[in-house]
Write a protein that binds this DNA or RNA. Structure first.
Length: 113
DNA sequence: TACGTGACCACGT
DNA sequence: CACGTGGCCACGT
């Protein structure tokens, strides 16, 4: 096990697990919260590896534009991620979250580091 | 070992 | 206001 990257992945997963039901956050917000400000890509990569871990609601993580950029990586079809979000009361149209700012959950603001 | 790619974001032109 | 480039870090070929 690589301690360093495992620690980073663990941190990302921990934050994602803290996302309340019916809310979403962005890769950049998580990266920023962890202090990796410019390394949002790593958060995305972490999500990629988290795929298969039911404890990590990756469907609640989208890009800063509110677009389901990672839907393509979900198993069960292209609309699997959208249906998961809609099941939590989040409206999604054409891979775009409606009222994104309203359902947006910022760890820095909500967790108040 | 080096290059290219990636579930992104911010800035410059 | 749209597009291009840089930056970040890790992984695959």
């Amino acid at each position: 096990m690589k301690d360093s990257q495992s620690n980073f992945f663990a941190d990302v997963y921990d934050v994602v697990r803290l996302i309340p039901k019916g809310r979403v956050t962005s890769y950049g917000a998580i990266a920023n919260y962890l202090g990796l400000k410019r390394s949002a890509r790593m958060v995305g990569w972490a999500m990629n590896q988290s795929h298969g871990d039911d404890s990590v609601p990756a469907h609640r993580v989208v890009n800063r534009n509110g677009v389901l950029s990672g839907k393509h990586f979900f198993s069960g079809g292209e609309h699997a991620m959208q249906q998961l979000l809609e099941a939590e009361g989040i409206k999604v149209i054409d891979d775009q979250i409606q009222d994104f700012k309203d359902v947006f959950w910022d760890p820095m603001s909500e967790l108040e580091l």
